[in-house]
Computed example of a mutant assay.
Amino acid sequence: MAYNTVRKRAAGSLLKLYDAYAKWYSTCITFEVSKADLAGMVGTSPESISKNSKKTSS
Results as ranks from 00 to 15, higher is better:
residue 50 S to N: 13
residue 20 A to F: 11
residue 57 S to M: 12
residue 10 A to V: 05
residue 16 K to W: 02
residue 58 S to A: 07
residue 56 T to Y: 12
residue 26 S to K: 10
residue 45 S to N: 04
residue 11 A to Q: 11
residue 36 A to V: 15
residue 25 Y to Q: 10
residue 26 S to E: 13
residue 25 Y to T: 10
residue 13 S to K: 15
residue 12 G to F: 12
residue 14 L to H: 04
residue 55 K to F: 14
residue 26 S to D: 12
residue 58 S to N: 06
residue 35 K to Y: 13
residue 44 T to I: 03
residue 47 E to G: 07
residue 37 D to N: 06
residue 48 S to I: 05
residue 19 D to S: 11
residue 37 D to M: 04
residue 40 G to Y: 02
residue 9 R to P: 03
residue 21 Y to C: 09
residue 39 A to V: 02
residue 20 A to H: 13
residue 38 L to I: 00
residue 1 M to T: 02
residue 58 S to R: 13
residue 7 R to C: 03
residue 45 S to I: 00
residue 39 A to W: 00
residue 21 Y to S: 06
residue 10 A to Y: 01
residue 38 L to P: 01
residue 49 I to V: 12
residue 12 G to R: 15
residue 15 L to G: 01
residue 49 I to F: 03
residue 11 A to S: 06
residue 28 C to S: 12
residue 57 S to F: 14
residue 40 G to D: 04
residue 50 S to R: 14
residue 5 T to G: 10
residue 51 K to V: 08
residue 23 K to W: 08
residue 23 K to R: 15
residue 13 S to F: 07
residue 15 L to T: 03
residue 50 S to L: 11
residue 44 T to G: 02
residue 35 K to P: 00
residue 56 T to M: 12
residue 39 A to D: 01
residue 16 K to M: 09
residue 50 S to D: 11
residue 45 S to V: 03
residue 56 T to C: 12
residue 29 I to C: 04
residue 35 K to L: 10
residue 13 S to H: 07
residue 19 D to C: 07
residue 44 T to A: 11
residue 9 R to W: 04
residue 36 A to K: 15
residue 31 F to Q: 01
residue 49 I to S: 00
residue 35 K to V: 03
residue 51 K to I: 11
residue 37 D to W: 03
residue 10 A to C: 10
residue 7 R to T: 08
residue 50 S to C: 10
residue 25 Y to V: 13
residue 26 S to V: 10
residue 40 G to W: 01
residue 6 V to A: 04
residue 21 Y to I: 03
residue 42 V to M: 06
residue 45 S to A: 02
residue 6 V to S: 01
residue 29 I to A: 02
residue 7 R to E: 08
residue 24 W to V: 05
residue 56 T to Q: 14
residue 44 T to P: 01
residue 45 S to D: 07
residue 47 E to L: 07
residue 30 T to L: 11
residue 55 K to R: 15
residue 57 S to E: 07
residue 9 R to Q: 11
residue 2 A to K: 14
residue 38 L to K: 03
residue 24 W to A: 05
residue 54 K to V: 14
residue 39 A to H: 01
residue 19 D to V: 08
residue 35 K to I: 05
residue 49 I to N: 00
residue 25 Y to H: 12
residue 34 S to F: 01
